[in-house]
């Protein structure tokens, strides 16, 4: 790829646009520029498509995926109902020479929680962007937020939890409920259903999952959730 791009950047007149380039060295005043009408040919449908995506998401017709790590990220919900819940511990390695390593030898204990399907009421997510928070709220109306394959690493889930068919003390490699398998020989627990009231998680680690967000509202705010 590199030699090809070198060729085309130094010798501009290509079969695709033979009119270009030939006069640039002779007349430096002639230069390429953006023709507004031409740009509008793409800008108008692109804007419409952006709006359509936002509207479809706000109606809950389109699932969006979140995969966030390394920034302060808060999720709250008044109620979470989930099926297929797993939780297991594991060791995660920091980058070599990380200043956070301290006396831990560069390893941190993380707890991975996974929920196969979850329904959340009055979801609020806030991302700290340094000074301002991006606030995403959804599911306040009749339709609830649906999340699938909700996976979080190293978080404390706080809230009032209730489980059905809970199995505590399984080996993490034998988990079946949410489709994630942990490392062998690690303590774990799983449950068929989970119900957490006043859910709140604040974490700097990974959160991932596919969400449908009916009633989506995006706004910037000075305070988080």
């Amino acid at each position: 790829m590199a030699p090809h791009s070198d060729v085309s950047s130094s010798t501009e007149p290509t079969p695709e646009n033979p009119e270009s380039g030939s006069t640039t060295s002779a007349d430096p005043q002639r230069r390429g520029r953006v023709r507004l009408r031409r740009a509008a040919v793409m800008a108008v449908p692109a804007t419409l498509a952006t709006v359509a995506l936002a509207v479809l998401t706000a109606e809950g017709a389109l699932g969006v995926q979140f995969a966030i790590s390394g920034m302060p990220f808060t999720v709250t919900a008044t109620e979470l109902n989930g099926t297929g819940f797993e939780q297991f511990g594991g060791l995660d390695n920091m980058a070599p020479g990380s200043p956070n390593a301290g006396d831990t030898g560069g390893q941190v204990l993380v707890v991975t929680s996974a929920i196969k399907n979850a329904t959340l009421t009055k979801l609020c997510q806030s991302v700290d962007l340094g000074g301002t928070n991006l606030l995403i709220t959804a599911g306040g109306g009749k339709e609830k937020v649906q999340a699938t394959d909700l996976t979080t690493d190293s978080t404390e889930l706080s809230g009032d939890a209730a489980f059905d068919d809970i199995e505590i003390g399984n080996d993490a490699s034998t988990l079946t409920r949410a489709g994630v398998k942990g490392p062998i020989g690690v303590f774990s627990q799983q449950a068929r259903t989970v119900r957490i009231a006043n859910l709140r998680q604040t974490n700097y680690a990974t959160t991932a999952g596919v969400f449908t967000l009916p009633g989506l509202k995006l706004r910037f705010s000075s305070s988080g959730c």
Partner: peptide, 30 residues
């Protein structure tokens, strides 16, 4: 928008769309 945190929380998506439109509308030798 669908796959990556709402297009990097909208910012990256807008940059990409505006950039693509500028590249589309650009003509050489004006």
């Amino acid at each position: 928008w669908m796959t990556s945190n709402l297009g990097g929380f909208l910012l990256g998506l807008l940059c990409g769309v505006v950039g693509s439109c500028l590249a589309f509308g650009w003509l050489p030798d004006q």
